[in-house]
Amino acid sequence: MNRLALAAAIAVASLGGLRSAVADDKADCSFLEFTATKGKEPAIDPDLKPLEKKLAHSAPFASWNTFRVQTKLDKTLQKSKAEALALKTGTANVILRERSAARVNLGITLDGADGKRVLDAKPDFQTGDWFFVGTSTPNAKDDGHFLALMCK
C-alpha cells in the first residue's frame, strides 16, 4: 500500500512537471498575408501549397481561383508580449494570451490601409490549425485580402 502511495505521488509530481513543460510561455507562429482574386487560370502561390485543398474547395476561398502571398512571416510569440506585423496592406498586432500543449489563445487586431480597425478578436484554437481573417479589398470589392496564421 505504501509502495502504491509512493508510486502515485511520483506520478502526480511528474505529471505536474509535464504539465508545466508543455504549458509553455511561447508559441512559434507562421503568418501569411495573401490576396484572393478571380483570374483566367487558377494560380496558387507555392507558399500557399499547404493550404491548396482548402483554397480550392472550401468557402469562402472557392469564390476565387488566384491566390498570391503578399507577406510571409515566422515569429516566436512570447506570452503577453504584443508583436506588430508589417503587412503589405494595413497592419496587424498579435499577442499570445495563453497556451497549452494543444491550443493557443491569441489576441489579434487587424487595421486596414486607411488605419481603420477592421477586426479585434480573441480566438482560441488548436495548435497546427490555420486561422484566417479576411475582408474585401477597399479598391476591388470582389477581391479578398487575408491574413492566415498557424501556431505550434
Partner: peptide, 29 residues
C-alpha cells in the same frame, strides 16, 4: 476554434470552419 471576443467596427462578420485531410481551419470573414 472558439472566439472569446470578436469586434468588427466597420462591418459584420461570419465564421466558417473548414476541414480536410490536411487539417482544420477557421475563417473569419
Amino acid at each position: 476554434a472558439e472566439l472569446e471576443a470578436l469586434d468588427t467596427p466597420g462591418g459584420t462578420w461570419t465564421m466558417m470552419n473548414v476541414s480536410d485531410e490536411d487539417g482544420a481551419a477557421t475563417v473569419i470573414w
